[in-house]
C-alpha cells in the first residue's frame, strides 16, 4: 500500500515528538513498552481477522477444493474450531508464546518452519534495496533541496514523482519485458549452478538485480522528497546566517550545519516507511518469484491458507513495529533536544 506524500511541516511534525522529562531509562522503557503493547494488539488483530471474521473458517479454506465431510470434521478438530471463540483465542496465544504458529494447510508443515525458510531472502532483498534507496534518496534530496528550482531539482523531483506514481509490480514486469534474456526471470538461483559458495553468490546476485532495481525505483522517491523538504525547511533557519557571518563557505554551511540538522527527521522517517517497503517487497517477490515472505504471502492468499496468512501477518506487522521502536530510540540518541530531561 503506497504511502501518502506528506507536505513538509507536517512531515516534520510527524517525527516522534520529543519527550519532556524523565531520564533515558524511562524513555527507553516507555518506547519498548509501547512496542510490546502494539505487538500484543497485532496478535489480537491476527486472531480476529483470521479466526473470528471469516465466518466459516473451514469453508473459506476449502473453497474450490473438494472436501469430504470426514476431512472437514478432521480439520475442525485440528484447528480447534469446536471450542468457543474465547477458548480458541487462549489456545492461539498459548501456542504463540511457544513459537507455534499453527500448521499451514497447503504445505502441511508448521507455519513457523515455512516462515523461517523464506525469511532471509526477504531480508536480503529488503536490506539491499533499502540501503541503496536511502543512499540514493538522501543524496538526490540534498542536492535538489540545496539548489531549489535548478534544472537538477526540477528533473530529479519530476522523475521521483513519476516513479512514485507507478505501481511496483508494473515496473517489475516492464523490466522483465525489457531485459529478456539478460537477467533471470524467477527464483533465487538456477538449479544447475555449482554448489560452491562463490558461484552460488554470483548467481544469487544475478537474480537479485532486477527485483532490487524494481524495489529501489519505487522506494527512493519518498526519501528524496522528504530530505528535500527537510533541507529547504532548515535553510530558512537563522543559525545558518550566523554560520555565513562567521566566514564559512556555502558548501561548508551546508555540510556542517544544514544537512546534519535536516537529516534528523529524515533518518527516523526511513524507519517509519518500512511498512511501505514491505508492501513493495510483497509485490516484487510475486512478480519475480523471489522465494521470500512476500511470495509466501501471495501463495497463501491464492489458496486461502488462513493459518499461513495469519502467521505472515503477525510476523510482518511485528517486524515493522520493532523497526519503529528502533526509530524512536535512535531519534533520542541523535537529537540532543530530545535527550534533555
Amino acid at each position: 500500500m503506497s504511502d501518502i506524500l506528506i507536505p513538509t511541516e507536517e512531515a516534520l511534525a510527524e517525527v516522534p515528538p520529543p519527550t519532556r522529562g524523565g531520564g533515558t531509562v524511562r524513555y527507553v522503557l516507555t518506547k519498548i513498552g509501547g512496542g510490546l503493547i502494539s505487538f500484543a494488539l497485532v496478535i489480537v488483530l491476527g486472531f480476529l481477522l483470521f479466526r473470528a471474521l471469516p465466518g466459516n473458517v473451514i469453508a473459506t479454506m476449502t473453497r474450490g477444493r473438494p472436501a469430504t465431510p470426514e476431512m472437514i470434521a478432521q480439520l475442525e478438530d485440528e484447528y480447534g474450531l469446536n471450542d468457543s471463540l474465547w477458548q480458541q483465542f487462549l489456545t492461539y496465544v498459548g501456542n504463540l508464546l511457544h513459537g507455534d504458529l499453527g500448521n499451514s494447510y497447503i504445505f502441511r508443515v508448521p507455519v513457523l518452519q515455512k516462515i523461517e525458510e523464506r525469511l532471509w531472502p526477504t531480508v536480503l532483498l529488503v536490506g539491499v534495496a533499502t540501503l541503496i534507496s536511502v543512499a540514493l534518496g538522501l543524496w538526490l534530496g540534498t542536492r535538489s533541496g540545496w539548489r531549489r528550482g535548478s534544472r537538477f531539482d526540477r528533473v530529479s523531483t519530476g522523475v521521483a514523482l513519476t516513479l512514485w506514481s507507478t505501481p511496483t509490480f508494473w515496473l517489475g514486469m516492464l523490466l522483465l519485458a525489457g531485459t529478456t534474456g539478460l537477467f533471470p526471470t524467477a527464483g533465487l538461483v538456477y538449479s544447475d549452478t555449482p554448489p560452491d559458495f562463490f558461484s552460488q553468490a554470483v548467481d544469487m546476485a544475478h537474480h537479485l538485480v532486477l527485483p532490487t532495481i524494481t524495489l529501489v525505483a519505487v522506494t527512493y522517491a519518498q526519501y528524496q522528497l522528504v530530505m528535500r523538504s527537510s533541507l529547504i525547511e532548515e535553510m530558512g533557519a537563522d543559525y545558518l546566517t550566523t554560520a555565513r557571518a562567521k566566514g564559512l563557505r556555502d558548501d561548508q554551511v551546508r555540510r556542517k550545519h544544514a544537512v546534519p540538522n535536516a537529516l534528523l527527521p529524515t533518518v527516523t522517517l526511513v524507519f517509519l516507511h518500512l511498512g511501505f517497503v514491505i508492501a513493495g517487497a510483497i509485490t516484487t517477490e510475486t512478480v519475480f518469484s523471489w522465494p521470500g515472505l512476500g511470495l509466501l504471502t501471495y501463495d497463501a492468499l491464492r489458496v486461502h491458507d488462513l493459518p499461513l496468512l495469519q502467521g505472515t501477518f503477525v510476523v510482518l506487522a511485528g517486524a515493522v513495529i520493532f523497526m519503529n521502536v528502533i526509530a524512536d530510540l535512535l531519534y533520542r540518541v541523535l537529537d540532543p533536544r530530545v535527550r534533555a530531561s
Binding site: S38, L53, I282
Partner: peptide, 16 residues
C-alpha cells in the same frame, strides 16, 4: 499507522 497497510488490506480482503 505502523501496521503495514498492504498487509492489513490483504488480510481483510482475503477473509471477506
Amino acid at each position: 499507522l505502523v501496521l503495514p497497510s498492504l498487509v492489513l488490506a490483504i488480510a481483510l480482503s482475503s477473509v471477506l
